[in-house]
Design a protein around this nucleic acid. Sequence first.
DNA 1: ATGAAAGCGCTAACAA
DNA 2: TTGTTAGCGCTTTCAT
Lengths: 340, 340
Amino acid sequence: MKRQSPNKVTSHEVAALAGVSRSAVSRTFTQGASVSAKTREKVLNAASELGYRPNALARSLIVRSTQMVGLVMAEWQNPFYTRMLRRFSERFQAEGYQLLLLTSNTDTDVDDAVRRLLQYQVDGLLVVSAKPSEAMARECANTGTPVVLVNRLAKTLQASSVTCDNAQIGRDTVEHLLAAGYRRLALVRGAPGVLTNIERTDAIRAGLSAAPDAEQVADVTGYLGYDAGRRVAAELWNSAAPPDAIICSSDPTALGVLDGARIDLGIDVPGQLAVVGMGDIPQSGWGAYRLTTVHLPVDEMIDLAVADLLARLADPELPPRPMVAHANLVNRDTVRSPHS
Amino acid sequence: MKRQSPNKVTSHEVAALAGVSRSAVSRTFTQGASVSAKTREKVLNAASELGYRPNALARSLIVRSTQMVGLVMAEWQNPFYTRMLRRFSERFQAEGYQLLLLTSNTDTDVDDAVRRLLQYQVDGLLVVSAKPSEAMARECANTGTPVVLVNRLAKTLQASSVTCDNAQIGRDTVEHLLAAGYRRLALVRGAPGVLTNIERTDAIRAGLSAAPDAEQVADVTGYLGYDAGRRVAAELWNSAAPPDAIICSSDPTALGVLDGARIDLGIDVPGQLAVVGMGDIPQSGWGAYRLTTVHLPVDEMIDLAVADLLARLADPELPPRPMVAHANLVNRDTVRSPHS
DNA sequence: ATGAAAGCGCTAACAA
DNA sequence: TTGTTAGCGCTTTCAT
């Protein structure tokens, strides 16, 4: 009866059984190394008999590449990020990389996550919706670990970044709303400090200032997600200066506002009130909502991030660069048509 | 001017700068090793000056533990899995583990994923919504790598499993529907071979056979997700034997059916037709839908999986075991109340 | 408490 | 093509 393979089989034991050297074993498992068909065969037989699998970590120690990419995920609220995660995983897996995943809640522990990932000698680093500190980014650069920031701007950081043109989004949104006859705009956003939102907000303000009869009646922060949206709808509507259009920084928030307006308050959307979201998640297209929203070019952003990281993995001399993807407004049923 | 830290700093260089041995450096970075306060201080200074971080991989080679848990994710459709992923990440991170993530599309490449993970010497393995082969599971057992299957039954496999009581769910659903006066049930499921669905389907059939005046008018497979649901609604309604209740194997599918019924076909739900989902994703509770569905005890399942894996990581002698979490029907507005 | 030496499992440079 | 040797960066006996 054949003995069950023991706890961990090493190249040493395979070599012994095959009657060759450990180098021969190594070579059989290395692409493009020179081994004769005969030894190769002997090794393969011995290996499968013992259930041998090369230890990727020991290997990485010497080839100085782990084929692992670190991924720091700071935002999960939005379904849109799940999609990113999935595609990142698929794309890198296809290229022979594994994803080492770390979650971060506050912006401060992004650095912790990056540090941990660095200790695991990841070949590259993807940071979604968060930004490591200046010092941390420098440390990455020093160890030669390329970093790509997704949905955060790099600025002076030694890292590539993928964002979308938020100012453009802001301008488009306001223009569309004004053309449709709305005049009293309210902004609903999540955390106050998020740069993408600030840029957008600024652009909205700028767009507004061009139309003297229109105004921004509110700019509330700290509202993110369906429940928060549903709550804020009532608050805004019952305020001293009720809006006739609400712009939300995320789709789930906008859907909450929409249900709050229609169901809780009996408001006619888009007749009395316009609601626009941000992201274009699948649910926004669903029949019961048909939310007018800004389509984030998620796939384009992912592809840019993957391509850049892969390129810099292949050639470490390549400099990091900022990339911007283009978003566009998708017109559905929560804003009046401009002609009516 | 202080020299920038070079590409990779090793314990050797730190030892040199601190004027101690490499062992001393190692001890400083190892919990509970005996180092004098003085050397410790010297090492720490040298380390921070050079920007030294211990190489976790080299370390793992000798301590025979990587502090990495492999996660194979086979299903992303359902938002519910995102939540799992997030919580797994958070929980293991809190325990000092990293997650090494691999995606698998077909059931066959689950084995590939597991093999890859094994080569990376993961300490444990989480497989969500898929099942490795008998042989693969044995290989894991041989290398002493504990495996937990989430949402798939282990049976003879050498692995723990977390499922929920599908037969119970099936019984509850049918009972509820019959009590509310529905008689012509249709089932809409995803891939035909999924065991959880089969169990549920069997239970539904069993429940039905107890009511002689009720029948199962359809059992269609291959429909998963909102779009598919919306399509199948029309197909069922226009078929020779239209149902008066549709049970879906996932919430997104059910929401698609719901929109298809109400919006595309003008059907009164729950008056003319009942729709019930499975999973209780956040959107199902949203105002525009209020879907009656089965609440999957996701958090409970996660906690069971995490606890079991952690326990078996700590004590490899612990045997794998099957665990079942309990689901319950949440009554909202897409099924008539039993009393009406 | 500390250093020297051995070795985790592997690959790469060098000879043969 | 093959084996021998050295060593990746670390931890861990074992003396001291």
